[in-house]
Design a protein around this nucleic acid. Sequence first.
DNA 1: GAAAATATGTTCTGGTAAGAACATAAATCT
DNA 2: AGATTTATGTTCTTACCAGAACATATTTTC
Lengths: 150, 150
Amino acid sequence: MATLDTQSASSQPFIPLVEELAAAYQAFSLYDAEGLRKSGAGLTPSQARVIFTLGGTDGLTCKDIGDVTLITKGTLTGVVDRLEDKGLVERWSVEGDGRKTIVALTRRGQRVYEREFPRHVEFLKSKFDKLSAADRAKATQLLQKIKGLF
Amino acid sequence: MATLDTQSASSQPFIPLVEELAAAYQAFSLYDAEGLRKSGAGLTPSQARVIFTLGGTDGLTCKDIGDVTLITKGTLTGVVDRLEDKGLVERWSVEGDGRKTIVALTRRGQRVYEREFPRHVEFLKSKFDKLSAADRAKATQLLQKIKGLF
DNA sequence: GAAAATATGTTCTGGTAAGAACATAAATCT
DNA sequence: AGATTTATGTTCTTACCAGAACATATTTTC
């Protein structure tokens, strides 16, 4: 198989897709972070993802949280540390399996979840409402396909 | 307008789209980083983006690099610092506008670009080839639309 | 032409980010 | 059972990330 040169590499037709994927995610991320910052609850995007994931559960293991939020375990330790410092979550050991740690919302964390999650969804909804249902469905499907490439 | 509760918030139809956008970008990013790590050139994803952006130019200002790579200026300073330490880029002042700094590939940086850019595009291409041209075009278009929401 | 506004880049801060090494615990294998 | 393997979470390292404050230089406005 002939190797590409810089010319032929830069004209590969998938490159615009990569650029748009990064740009779209970037645009969303900045807006997402802005909404959290302005809400006054002092949550970072990662912290919010953890709080929103824990909401409505009786606590999850770090592994489960990581699977949902896509935060790797090494990073998650620090995120949970800071949420613990803020009094929004608590950790405890699980009966029967000494490896696992359960992380759950405290009463304060529960209140923050109930206030911030709907507020933030509303904040995002105002933008996503501008996308048609058909585009939304098609985009979701294609992104799923792209995820599956790797 | 009635505010959402946690129930109605979590059932908003745009949420799967957000999740897939994050998951697809995440999957791509991990694969992208893996390819750079294995190539042995020791480039991080951000460093590679800068090198690949500078390739084929006579040097760009930090602002221009940031516009293309989506790296904010505060972060870019550090990325360019490390590339400079590795001898892959050099900085100089621009005649006529004392605010601007030009960043350009050194001869070593040029060689790294010529070797790593095609190699990395080939690495990504092996995955994106599994996507049909129609899906690729549609995904690109929809991501552009999503980017435009914010 | 001087003052105000804008542009560019660096520095600083707190918080991720992934990966590797580590410690401990549980499951599996023989 | 005892040894090996796998699972879970923490710690450590290097680098990135955005935003804010800053320094400098240029442009605009009056």
